[in-house]
Design a binder for these strands. Structure first.
Lengths: 146, 146
DNA sequence: TTATATTAGTTGCATAACTAACTATATGTC
DNA sequence: GACATATAGTTAGTTATGCAACTAATATAA
């Protein structure tokens, strides 16, 4: 066993998702402080629906890197909040399409502003080139690991 | 609201921890396939204890970026598996020191090997310079966000 | 066209995360 | 020494995650 090899890149910190959870926690706090009673996980679903409404649950699995069961329950909870509704697809009766309700619309601008602000703070002192490298590394790590 | 600003760096993917969860899931699978019945969260605690045995729960909070409650239950579960034990500190009776049991020792080499292998696979095609940049960015994002 | 396999979604079970409220011990100040 | 404050850890309550087993609908193949 080679500790030296293991420490190459200290990927241990990647596994723990240190940076990502720190940003996520900060954003969650900012939501709460602003009186927005949603979790970042719920927000990550809304985020995709704001970009394209009426996605299937399966499509949300793919786009948010979660399994079917996680999406089922996340949608359950967001539906309870009255922010989305499931509508059965007419083309394929196995499929639920998830649509935003009117109640979700006002959340969009407020959360986008908070997300922008949170991310700008998180990214202070970090160049666009560095961000590009991180994105590129993430993509390759993801492809290598799935 | 500026979508353009928001997309700078697609930090959204950082928030979702795409890469880190992919590696973590892969490592978890490799543990299971090897008959090692521990979670990566449990392993992250053992990892720190293998480096330095007898840490306090508070110290484990700091080193693994978790809160007190999470550590309490993680230690509960690892203790149930018989891999660690809590021993009250003689210096400060509020403090629990967490010690590895003999049963935890054999796990070290097996899991280190799997972690090495998993990380090497995850890091294929990624240079040391890129890893250094990711580490550096992570550190700054963490500092900016805590 | 019937049998088989695949796909979308749900549910049960276990682990883990965070917040907030709580107990017990230590520390600091008057 | 007594009272206030800070620190270490536990517990309760809620949300989220993953796997595995399940149902229902669709697609494929004999």
């Amino acid at each position: 066993m080679s500790n030296n090899q293991f420490k190459r890149g200290e990927l241990y910190s990647v596994i723990n998702g240190v940076a990502s959870t720190a940003v996520a926690r900060r954003l969650q706090k900012n939501f709460r402080n602003a009186g927005l009673e949603i979790t970042i996980e719920q927000w990550s679903i809304l985020y995709h629906l704001w970009k394209e409404d009426g996605l299937s649950q399966q499509e949300l699995c793919t786009r948010t890197f979660r399994d079917k069961a996680s999406i089922t329950r996340l949608i359950d909870n967001i539906e309870k909040l009255g922010l989305v509704e499931r509508i059965a697809s007419k083309d394929d009766r196995r499929v639920n399409l998830v649509y935003l309700t009117d109640a979700a619309k006002p959340l969009q601008e407020a959360t986008y502003n908070l997300a922008n602000q949170t991310m700008n703070e998180a990214l202070q002192g970090i160049s666009k080139e560095e961000i590009e490298i991180v994105k590129s590394v993430f993509q390759r790590v993801y492809e290598n690991s799935k």
